[in-house]
Amino acid sequence: MPNDVPVLRVARTRELDALRALVARSWRALAARSYAPDVIEAALGVAIRVDPALVEDGTYFVAEIDGQLAACGGWSARVPTVKGADLPTPRAEVRAMFVASEHTRRGLGRALLERAERAIRDAGFDSAYLVATHSGLELYRAAGYVERGAHVAMLPGGVAFPLTLMSRSLAR
């Protein structure tokens, strides 16, 4: 009998290929309501990807259901520069949050986000930042993130990838 209860845990390096497949499947399915197909494909593997350093750092988490990866996401204090954005340094960013389309609306994204925020607080940060895709805005707004401004990343082939910079206080 299947067990629908998700298990949240730290991602393992040996799972990188499975994580990449989950991210690609999630991105293609869930971004379709927010981005054109050329943007979706241009972003995949460039801006939309699992950073292996997060897995190696132990700051990337998975939600597993019945032994299968259902969602992933994490955080890092080693964050990329966002051109033209007035963001503090150092800072902690929520990174690479993805839920398999067959597991959406079950609280997995929120659970992973809360796990990342706890880790960010435990690391001594009192705010979390993120660069949201338009398909993730609803989750982040519901979790209390506020928009700090729009950003456009230029992808290979000159494809414009609109994003939203967001932050949230983690003070207790």
Rank of each mutant, 00 (worst) to 15 (best):
residue 15 E to L: 06
residue 16 L to V: 01
residue 18 A to V: 00
residue 19 L to Y: 02
residue 19 L to H: 04
residue 23 V to N: 07
residue 23 V to Q: 09
residue 26 S to Y: 05
residue 31 A to R: 05
residue 32 A to N: 15
residue 32 A to W: 15
residue 33 R to L: 09
residue 36 A to S: 11
residue 37 P to L: 00
residue 40 I to Q: 03
residue 40 I to L: 08
residue 40 I to H: 00
residue 41 E to S: 14
residue 41 E to V: 13
residue 42 A to D: 04
residue 43 A to R: 02
residue 43 A to D: 00
residue 45 G to T: 05
residue 46 V to P: 02
residue 46 V to Q: 10
residue 47 A to L: 14
residue 47 A to P: 01
residue 47 A to N: 13
residue 50 V to A: 03
residue 53 A to V: 05
residue 55 V to R: 00
residue 58 G to T: 07
residue 60 Y to G: 09
residue 60 Y to F: 15
residue 60 Y to Q: 09
residue 61 F to K: 01
residue 63 A to R: 07
residue 64 E to A: 02
residue 64 E to D: 04
residue 66 D to Y: 02
residue 66 D to K: 01
residue 67 G to K: 05
residue 67 G to F: 04
residue 67 G to Q: 06
residue 67 G to L: 05
residue 68 Q to T: 11
residue 68 Q to N: 12
residue 68 Q to R: 15
residue 70 A to D: 07
residue 71 A to G: 15
residue 71 A to M: 11
residue 72 C to S: 14
residue 74 G to M: 07
residue 74 G to K: 06
residue 76 S to F: 11
residue 77 A to K: 05
residue 77 A to N: 08
residue 78 R to D: 06
residue 79 V to K: 04
residue 80 P to C: 07
residue 80 P to W: 08
residue 82 V to C: 14
residue 82 V to I: 15
residue 83 K to P: 13
residue 85 A to M: 14
residue 86 D to V: 15
residue 86 D to K: 15
residue 87 L to K: 10
residue 87 L to I: 10
residue 90 P to H: 03
residue 92 A to Q: 03
residue 92 A to N: 07
residue 92 A to H: 04
residue 93 E to Q: 14
residue 94 V to S: 05
residue 95 R to H: 11
residue 96 A to T: 08
residue 96 A to Q: 10
residue 98 F to S: 08
residue 99 V to Y: 03
residue 100 A to F: 12
residue 100 A to N: 12
residue 101 S to Y: 12
residue 102 E to Q: 10
residue 103 H to A: 12
residue 103 H to R: 13
residue 106 R to T: 10
residue 106 R to Y: 13
residue 108 L to S: 02
residue 110 R to W: 02
residue 110 R to E: 12
residue 112 L to Q: 05
residue 112 L to M: 08
residue 112 L to F: 03
residue 112 L to V: 07
residue 113 L to E: 02
residue 114 E to D: 12
residue 116 A to H: 10
residue 118 R to S: 09
residue 119 A to G: 00
